[in-house]
Computed example of a mutant assay.
Amino acid sequence: ADGLRVADALAGRLLAWRSGADDPSIEPGGAGAIDLHWAEVHQATGVLGCRLGVSLEEALVRMRARAFAAGQPLTETAREILARELPS
């Protein structure tokens, strides 16, 4: 269990990393800093899990893969998923 927690923390850190992390013009959370908007990530994981009919673990893996493929922070991907679920 401890190994999984460490792997999860490191994977999140790796997915949030961007080259140019020392550039002060890059917003917090976009250049390798740990983003503190995890509530959005958890909410989007639940939404995605329900939408796809998969476990929460599978939904989180898919969301991380999508964020990585798009080259964006995990929280930005989570916000996009949540924005599609809210009524206009």
Score class of each variant (00 low, 15 high):
Arg84Trp: 00
Ala7Thr: 14
Arg79Asn: 03
Ala59Lys: 00
Val61Gly: 00
Gly12Val: 00
Trp38Tyr: 15
Ala16Phe: 00
Gln43Ile: 10
Trp38Ile: 15
Leu74Pro: 00
Leu56Ile: 05
Arg13Lys: 09
Leu14Tyr: 04
Arg66Asp: 05
Arg64Thr: 01
Gly71Leu: 08
Ala39Met: 13
Leu14Val: 10
Gly71Pro: 06
Trp38His: 15
Ala39Ile: 13
Asp23Trp: 08
Gly3Leu: 13
Val47Gln: 05
Gln72Lys: 09
Glu40Met: 11
Thr77Pro: 03
Arg62Ser: 00
Arg64Phe: 00
Gln72Thr: 05
Asp2Ala: 11
Gly30Asp: 06
Ala70Leu: 11
Leu52Asn: 04
Ala83Lys: 08
Thr45Gly: 01
Ala83Gln: 08
Ala21Met: 10
Leu4Tyr: 13
Leu82Thr: 02
Met63Trp: 02
Leu14Trp: 09
Leu48Cys: 05
Glu58Asp: 12
Arg62Thr: 01
Gly3Lys: 14
Pro87Thr: 02
Val61Phe: 04
Ala78Lys: 02
Arg18Leu: 09
Leu4Trp: 12
Gly29Ile: 08
Gly71Tyr: 03
Gly32Cys: 12
His37Asp: 14
Gly20Asn: 14
Asp23Arg: 12
Arg62Glu: 01
Ile34Pro: 02
Trp17Ala: 07
Gly32Ser: 09
Arg84Thr: 06
Leu56His: 12
Pro73Asp: 06
Leu86Lys: 15
Ala1Cys: 08
Ala11Glu: 09
Arg79Phe: 04
Arg18Ala: 07
Thr75Asp: 03
Leu52Pro: 01
Ala33Met: 15
Gly53Pro: 13
Glu57His: 11
Ala70Lys: 13
Glu27Lys: 15
Ser19Ala: 10
Leu52Gly: 01
Pro24Met: 07
Pro73Val: 11
Gly49Ser: 09
Gly20Tyr: 07
Gly53Lys: 13
Ala70Val: 06
Ala69Phe: 02
Ala67Gln: 02
Glu57Asn: 03
Gln43Leu: 14
Pro73Met: 11
Ala69Gln: 12
Gly32Asp: 09
Asp23His: 07
Gly49Cys: 04
Asp23Ser: 07
Ala39Thr: 14
Val41Glu: 03
Arg5Gln: 12
Ala31Met: 03
Ile34Tyr: 05
Leu4Ser: 12
Gly46Lys: 12
Pro24Gln: 10
Ile81Tyr: 00
Asp8Ser: 11
Arg66Met: 06
Val54His: 01
Ser88Ala: 03
Ala9Ile: 14
His42Gly: 03
Gly32Phe: 07
His37Val: 15
Thr75Trp: 02
Arg18Asn: 10
Arg84Cys: 02
